[in-house]
Design a protein around this nucleic acid. Structure first.
Lengths: 337, 337
DNA sequence: CTGTTAGCGCATTCAA
DNA sequence: TTGAATGCGCTAACAG
């Protein structure tokens, strides 16, 4: 049985006044007499009246809902990011719809469609590793749904984004290793789609040059992030005649897999072979053999900054203005453990 | 500028037919002539028509949205659970609103209110550790919003729930330790609100009895899950005259903190002191000194089962039926590492 | 200060 | 087989 919830109509009837008076009274409209206002509020309280938001959403063309699309929530990076997003959203009386692409483009598209149908006021997205084209996001312009990308940002100019520039930290990472006596520094990079800007590797190259260390292309391998693939990449490095004494790894998870594998091979971590990685995931603190340094990418802050930007866009939109594309870039930081 | 999206009205006008005909044609209503139906669909496609869901939600009193309230997403347990939830939700054309209570009752209440306002069709919840009363959930009955609790379930009979019974695994855990020669088995339990049913400890007691090991209350301490508090609890255990040789710990995160602390004290993990815990979080696989065993609580499955139950409730509701309270209990499993 | 009216987009009942 | 009319609950323009 559907319970019938009270409406302003009901209140109006009981008070024998008009619906609009009730509506205005409830909104503290200045032109309402104090007496009627009180009466209305009293009656509303008695009836336990609550406005039907679906009606309001419908009428106002606004749902106070933002959609968040990201690869997965298992990575601490993303769960931290969503904390930032949620904190700001709640503060602004918004609520968060979530969708995990699981790094699958089709899923990502479905989620976008679903959120579009639900008429979210805006979307925050970190693209999947298989996302190369972003039409599914671009079409949202036709629906006036602003999109802000964060962290995993598509490499096109006409988007709003918040991300962390990893170039300087990559340089720092190499500098740090060199200072510690390393000359053979290898690099395990991630899948190409997540590396378009190549900040990590460019920093690596430039820092080697700066330190007058010749680049050895054999020392640069890549993984698709799967365990097996990472192990293969690692094996390749171990086959190089002059083995590396340090490896910079795409992110902490890959680093953990690599370290785990290396230990099975009786390699002494951070003695025979040192690891530096990206993300600085808290779980590494529990490890006995963590990377000796990791690049902090400030997920919580990326989340809040992206959400701020999104709210700005939503406001501009309802004010009928157009905003130029904004690309916020935070500075990463090499954290030595 | 608000773009004006096409409506059925627009289609009707262009085709010089009535709105209702368009509506019916779009829904493949049997009473519509094939020709007009085709024409309507063609026009709809041309105009890129898409139904305004907010209007439909409003009219149908249904939003195809479920709310998920849980303490936090950082714990792998909950991010796995939400995977299960999301998979089922998407499969049923639903979308997921998320809210993290951060183990704070006030936040939890706010989230419930917010989701209520958004007229979610149902809610899945794992309560915060400070939640002792559940009026904020119970009031949802007045709004016909069904609630299914999972994992952290309030200890009252009149709720729907899905959870994992930890009693048997607790017995197994003790048995396992005894088989491995332990006689002094300590216990670090969690905050009382998360322990109402006391399955863990009851299993512990019963298993000790079964193994003819006298209970030593000094070996039972508790933590509020914070690092400091866990350390204090651990210190207490180390002060007992006959020290324990094994500790069963409330969950993996507490276990990690305890292990970390123990190592600082030069205790040899799983030699001087063995650890068994609950949750079986994947991250423990990366550890060099993980608990030797952990109780798997099947978060993904809890998520899917809870969602199934919720959908059943939603269906019953729209069919005007009432459902008896259902409490699904899964069996946990002790996983030896 | 308050009431009347219209309309958001759609589904649906009642007539034709 | 189709159209006209109604209403979901609320806001707001317009009129007193």
């Amino acid at each position: 049985m559907e319970k019938k919830l009270p409406t302003i109509k009901e209140i109006a009837k009981r008070l024998s006044i008009s619906i609009s008076t009730v509506s205005r009274a409830l909104h503290d409209h200045p032109s309402i007499g104090l007496r009627t206002k009180m009466a209305v509020k009293k009656m509303a309280a008695e009836l336990n009246y609550e406005p039907n938001q679906t009606a309001i959403f419908f009428k106002q063309r606004k749902t106070f809902t933002i959609g968040v699309i990201l690869p997965n929530l298992r990575e601490e990076f993303f769960s931290s990011a969503i904390n930032g997003i949620e904190d700001l959203a709640i503060g602004n009386n918004y609520i968060v719809l979530i969708g995990q692409s699981r790094d699958d483009l089709e899923r990502e598209k479905n989620i976008v469609e679903s959120m579009k149908k639900h008429r979210v006021d805006g979307i925050l997205a970190s693209i999947s590793k298989s996302t190369t084209r972003i039409e599914h996001f671009e079409q949202l312009k036709n629906y006036d749904i602003p999109v802000v990308f964060f962290d995993r940002v598509p490499d096109v100019p006409e988007v709003h984004s918040v991300s962390c520039n990893l170039y300087h930290s990559s340089v720092e990472a190499v500098d740090f290793l060199v200072r510690n006596g390393h000359k053979r520094i290898a690099y395990i990079q991630g899948p190409p789609t997540l590396n378009i800007k190549n900040e990590r590797l460019n920093g690596y190259y430039d820092a080697l040059k700066k330190n007058k260390i010749p680049v050895d292309e054999h020392l640069i391998v890549s993984t698709d992030l799967s365990v097996e693939n990472t192990q293969k990449a690692f094996d390749k490095l171990m086959l190089v005649k002059k083995k590396p004494t340090a490896i910079i790894v795409f992110n902490d998870y890959v680093a953990l897999d690599a370290i785990h594998y290396a230990r099975q091979k009786n390699i002494r971590i951070n003695k025979d072979l040192s690891f530096v990685s990206y993300a600085n995931a808290p779980l590494t603190h529990y490890l006995d053999y963590p990377p000796i340094a990791s690049v902090e990418q400030f997920p919580y802050e990326q989340g809040t900054r992206a959400t701020e930007l999104l709210f700005k866009l939503i406001d501009q939109k309802s004010a009928g203005q157009e905003m130029p594309y904004e690309n916020v870039v935070l500075k990463s930081e090499l954290i030595i453990h």
